[in-house]
Amino acid sequence: MTPAFEKLQKQLKQLPGLGYRSSERIALHLLVEKPGQLPVLVEALQQAALAVKRCPRCGNLAEGGLCAICADERRDAGVVCVVEHVPDLVAVERSAAFRGVYHVLHGKLSPINGVGPDDLNLKSLLARLATGEVRELILALSNDVEGEATCHYLTQHLPADRAVKITRIGFGLPSGGGVLYADSVTLKSALEGRRDYS
């Protein structure tokens, strides 16, 4: 193989989910099998790199100014759902159960991997809270050690005189799932998170 090919292949291998074989296949596909796709892809990459930015308010993907969700006036800007990554936002959005707005942290506290508070999209969240417009903060971070630690960190940074309600999404049985098939740890958290029913 040529040096330029190897350079391309190495770059492709850096992408998530691609190993040596698949990156080689993609490189061959673009250069040899379907060379017509290449200029289209290059242009799309360039355009996206220039146009796609983070929404200055919530950190979601946006093109020039606010993202589509923050710009939508029908959404309730008083309820903010905090998520780790953009795909998490997409997942909550797909549930169609949420009419508020989001805040994307772009990660969670992970000292082992060298991720500290400064690496997260936290400052803009505190700025949003300072405006007094937010009534409720829904913490939809993952239910693991680092997700929980990030939640604790967040709550410590809220202004003391806050009138903001803080909630954590529930963890328990999957919809349509029977009690019989749930593992004991999930059942425990489902019992702890039970609510009034009447």
Partner: peptide, 26 residues
Amino acid sequence: KALAGRNSLLKRGGASDQELSAFEQV
């Protein structure tokens, strides 16, 4: 896992009290 998080903050040094506290609460 929480212990590894707290220890790694201590090892690197310079972590804020809030950061340590976040892992202590877990």
